[in-house]
């Protein structure tokens, strides 16, 4: 079991003491792998990530049940400051740059967990992965394009030397070519740095191309899991997430809906 970096055991998450979002989620992430979390809006993917990174706390959410093990020790409900210092960095959904800081200053904020240590080399490393950032390093982040911002926030996270990188919807609102580039870099980071990555995605096709393993969430539960290749072959996944039915064309919405409702009982 040495290979397992992160393990969620049957966790439940409740917001504001009333809204239960996760209802017993269990998953495990092996070292140096890319694990992808798929599912529709409101399935609880982002909440799962936040439960790991501790960012539930400022949003009034709490892990009420279950344990989150990171390298063998429990980290649930710890403050983000503590968790980030364990080496878990989350890249937030919607990118969230520091708009009034330059690109380079943005990257320097990523050194917060290693305050006082030299960071020149890390900057070089980030510019190596994202050459586009080097050209704009003196410009304000507020004026960057969506693709550049996505690179920026990922680079910012890399500055912290994360063991585990949580990526929330990196492809959101980006052109297909840019998405391709981003995913290529994610794979590259994983291979060259050995960073373990948990990837939350709507774009299941792209995600499964680079991931090693995948989980499918619905309604706050894990409904399916398997290696990326298995999931690609699975008829349900092909149907709902990859948009390919057995006959090769999309089924009508009503059929999809009834099918899905039935599947919930699984």
């Amino acid at each position: 079991m040495d290979r397992i970096l992160l393990q969620l055991n049957n966790i439940s998450v409740v917001y504001s003491d009333v809204i239960q979002v996760l209802k017993g989620v269990s998953l495990s992430v092996e070292k140096n792998r890319i694990v992808s979390l798929l599912g529709s809006n409101g399935a609880g993917k982002t909440t799962t990530l936040k439960a790991v990174s501790g960012l539930l706390k400022p949003e009034n959410g709490k892990v009420t049940d279950g344990t989150i093990l990171y390298q063998g020790s429990e980290i649930q409900n710890q403050s983000p400051e503590t968790i980030t210092r364990h080496g878990i960095i989350q890249v937030l959904e919607g990118r969230q740059p520091f708009k009034y800081l330059t690109i380079e200053e943005n990257l320097r904020v990523g050194t917060a967990t290693r305050w006082g240590k030299p960071y020149r080399q890390d900057l070089e490393r980030v510019y190596h992965y994202f050459p586009a950032l080097w050209e704009r390093r003196r410009g304000l982040a507020g004026y960057c394009s969506g693709g550049e911002l996505q690179m920026l926030v990922m680079g910012r996270a890399l500055m912290a030397h994360p063991e585990l990188l949580l990526l929330d919807e990196p492809s959101l609102g980006l052109a297909p070519l840019v998405v391709k580039e981003i995913f290529r870099i994610i794979r590259q980071i994983n291979e060259e740095e050995g960073t373990t990555i948990v990837l939350v995605e709507q774009n299941a096709r792209m995600a499964l191309q680079i991931a090693h393993y995948g989980y499918v969430m619905e309604n706050g539960k894990i409904v399916m899991e398997g290696s990326a290749d298995d999931l690609c072959e699975n008829p349900d996944i092909r149907e709902f997430y990859l948009g390919m039915s057995a006959a090769g064309n999309l089924k009508s919405y009503t059929e999809v809906k009834s099918y899905r409702r039935r599947k919930r009982w699984l």
């Binding site: 400022p58 960095i89 969230q96 917060a112």
Partner: peptide
Amino acid sequence: RAALSLGV
């Protein structure tokens, strides 16, 4: 929020 996510 972003600052928090980076461990500031």
